[in-house]
Nucleic acid binder design. Structure first.
Length: 313
DNA sequence: AAACGGACCAACCGCTCACAG
DNA sequence: ACTGTGAGCGGTTGGTCCGTT
């Protein structure tokens, strides 16, 4: 007898989450906190398995998620942590606040791994590849000057010329790789400063040139809920917006969001989980009723989640 | 303009672990 | 000690986007 996925037991939805589902889950978790995931779908009125809800919350809806491009510091830290921890993404993500294991894993597989290979470093062992080039770049993108005697050209930060010393040929690909990793502001435009973080300006700011799929995000730094239009939204924007809205009363966005998230988790309302054991179906009714009573958060978030594509397939 | 291919990322699957009964 | 259940984790897949031909 093989295992069955949670969606096989009942007719449960799979695939991408709709804004409506996101809203239900977000409202439920912010109200009652994280408890027994297996009863979340029932209580929140979702046709999903608890596992799917958990993943959606952790990887997407959580208000303390950072999103946006990885900074050079984060990149270095991932490489360094991977060297000691291996593919233990959850442990690695524990060292990077606001980043999920899934996000780091994807970043590693899609970008960092290739970058290391091109730098002549085995991404598994973090040691130089046997056939690696003579010029080994450090994780921060700078050349390892310990080997500089063997390098045909001197290292010059603004006018670097790189040679494969076997062929003594100019290697444009290698050069572009170097620039990409060493010039985070210019070429990549993905450098995220502490200042950016503090002002929550990373995602959605068209000036930030984020190429991580948040191009349709609104500029949250200048966001005005009154002028908020449907066109500002994408399916990947909702958590950021909720985060913003949740914290819009405070000038210190990040700390307020963190406190709110913390309060959320320790909310006395989490007693719902005990309550559910006895009065599950009855409470579901009550919960639906409560959703109709509006608060600023529900009002704004349902406004947000209503938008976007049709996910009803 | 259409077809194609690669990159990226969200989400699923299946396994392991922890814990309660 | 054993068993069942739920949570957590890592590998993998499939859809979408975007650049190239």
């Amino acid at each position: 007898m093989g295992r069955h996925s949670c969606t096989e037991k009942e007719k449960l939805r799979k695939g991408l989450w709709s804004p409506d589902e996101d809203e239900k889950l977000y409202n439920f978790i912010t109200r009652f906190g994280v408890g027994c995931w297996s009863s979340v779908p029932k209580l929140a009125g979702l046709q999903r398995c608890g596992k799917s809800c958990r993943l959606r919350w952790i990887n997407y809806l959580r208000p303390d998620l950072k999103r946006g491009m990885f900074s050079q510091e984060e990149e270095d830290m991932i490489i360094s942590l991977h060297e000691t921890l291996g593919n233990r993404w959850a442990q690695i993500s524990a060292h990077l606040p606001g980043r999920t294991d899934n996000e780091i894993k994807n970043f590693w597989n899609s970008s960092l791994k290739k970058k290391l290979v091109k730098q002549g470093i085995d991404p598994n062992t973090h040691k130089p590849l046997p056939e690696s080039r003579d010029l080994i770049l450090q994780p921060n993108g700078l050349p390892n000057l310990a080997n500089s005697d063997e390098i045909g050209q001197e290292f010059c930060p603004n006018n670097v010329i790189c040679y494969n010393s076997e062929q003594k040929e100019y290697d444009p690909l290698f050069l572009s790789e170097f620039q990409e990793s060493s010039d985070p502001i210019g070429y990549h435009s993905n450098f995220v400063t502490d200042h950016d973080h503090q002002n929550n300006q990373i995602a959605g700011n068209p000036n930030s040139n984020s190429n991580y799929g948040f191009n349709s995000m609104p500029d949250l730094a200048n966001f005005n809920p009154g002028n908020f239009m449907d066109t500002h939204l994408s399916d990947s924007s909702t958590s950021r917006i909720c985060s913003y809205l949740s914290s819009s009363h405070s000038s210190n966005v990040n700390s307020h969001t963190a406190i709110q998230a913390n309060n959320m988790m320790t909310s006395p309302e989490t007693s719902l989980w005990d309550f559910d054991k006895k009065f599950g179906s009855m409470f579901q009714f009550q919960l639906k009723d409560e959703e109709n009573s509006s608060s600023w958060q529900e009002g704004t978030s349902s406004y947000i989640f209503k938008n976007s594509k049709d996910f009803s397939n």
